[in-house]
Simulated assay, not measured.
Amino acid sequence: MKLTLKEVFIISRPRFWMYVLGTFLVGIISSGNLFLYDTTTTFLLIAFGLFFWIPANVFIYGVNDIYDYQTDIYNEKKVKYESVLKLEKHRSLWIIIILLLVPFLPLFFIVNLPTKIALLVFLFTGLFYSATPLRAKSKPPLDVLFSSIIYVSPALVGFFITGRTTIAWAAVLGGLIWAFGMQTYSAVPDIEADRKAGVNTLATMLGEKKALWFCLIAYLISASIGYFYVGYIAVVFGIIYGVIVLLSIYNLSKLFKYYTYFPLINILGGAFLFFYLFFKEIFR
């Protein structure tokens, strides 16, 4: 059974597009003034920007929908807030994923080695976070680690494409820890459905409240690391995310409502960080 363009659009999770595209852009701007790059580098940055816009999102969320089918049918969040992909459409989705990725394959042979490695890391974690035989999302703490790498590795791709290879790995660690919190928070509304389907996650192991306390600690540690790179902006982010998690801890009945705010908060926060770094580089 074929998929419509609308269905592919929904599968790509438009509200989450900026999670990988946004980190890619932050990686670019953290490498220096983007107006100073040569024509080839600019072409690669634009091409990979297109890749991390729709194809990469259809890839990671499409694979997720295929392998999460047995969980999704029990998941109220998935049924009401997103959509469950019918079993007979899985084959068509695989074809679409391949068709979207293949045009970007030649670029792999143009970019430098660090970029190749970062791309392979993104593709590996994006696939095997959900896919068998590894299916990291059901093997905590690999679920948190793989998910975090999926969202942070595009920043490394953006950074390395520019030719820069000296990277502040402590900042990358801070980004990963922030993503630990994001992934775990998003998994808390899925606890009941995951348990019914026999899927183990860090959230199902810890339970709602302990998982949320883990999120709070992750955000505070990430903000502390971020302070050494972006100053009080990291502190503000830490307070915002910390408040949301605390509200969730003491109002568990409203947790899903708070969860729906996260995409907007993440996008606004990411945009603010990008433009902060942008103007910092431009007026250096």
Rank of each mutant, 00 (worst) to 15 (best):
K6N: 14
E7W: 03
I10P: 10
I11W: 01
R13K: 10
R13I: 01
F16P: 06
F16M: 11
W17A: 06
Y19T: 09
V20L: 12
L21Y: 04
F24N: 10
I28V: 14
S31N: 04
G32L: 06
G32F: 12
L34Y: 13
L36E: 13
Y37R: 12
Y37K: 10
D38W: 15
T39L: 15
T39Y: 12
T40F: 12
T40H: 15
F48L: 14
F48P: 10
N57M: 12
N57S: 09
F59K: 05
F59R: 03
I60S: 11
Y61C: 04
G62V: 02
G62E: 03
V63Y: 05
V63L: 10
N64L: 00
Y67P: 01
T71L: 07
Y74E: 15
N75S: 11
N75E: 13
K77P: 09
E82R: 10
S83D: 07
S83A: 11
L85P: 02
L87Q: 12
R91Y: 09
S92V: 08
L93W: 02
W94H: 14
I95A: 08
I97V: 04
L99M: 05
F104Y: 11
L105G: 01
F109Y: 14
I110K: 13
V111G: 15
L113T: 11
P114T: 01
P114D: 04
T115I: 08
A118T: 03
L120K: 11
L123D: 04
F124H: 06
F124T: 05
L127D: 05
L127S: 10
F128G: 09
F128P: 02
Y129L: 05
Y129N: 01
P133N: 13
R135T: 04
A136D: 03
S138Y: 12
P141G: 07
L142Q: 02
F146Y: 03
F146E: 02
Y151T: 06
A155M: 14
V157S: 03
F159M: 14
I161F: 11
T162L: 14
G163K: 15
G163W: 09
T166D: 15
T166N: 15
A168W: 13
A168Y: 08
A171G: 12
A171C: 05
A171L: 04
L173E: 08
W178T: 06
A179F: 12
M182N: 08
M182G: 13
M182V: 14
Q183P: 08
T184Q: 11
Y185C: 07
S186N: 12
A193D: 05
D194A: 04
D194W: 12
V199D: 07
T201Q: 05
L202E: 00
T204K: 01
L206E: 07
G207A: 06
K209E: 13
K210F: 10
K210I: 01
Y219D: 02
S224D: 00
I225W: 00
Y227C: 00
Y232P: 02
I233C: 08
I233A: 15
I233K: 11
A234F: 02
F237D: 03
G238N: 09
I239T: 07
Y241C: 05
G242P: 00
I244C: 10
L247H: 02
S248P: 05
L252Y: 09
S253C: 09
K254N: 08
K254H: 13
L255D: 05
K257A: 12
Y258F: 05
T260M: 11
Y261P: 01
Y261N: 05
P263Q: 07
I265D: 06
I265C: 09
N266Q: 14
N266W: 07
G269T: 01
F272K: 00
Y276S: 08
L277S: 02
K280E: 06
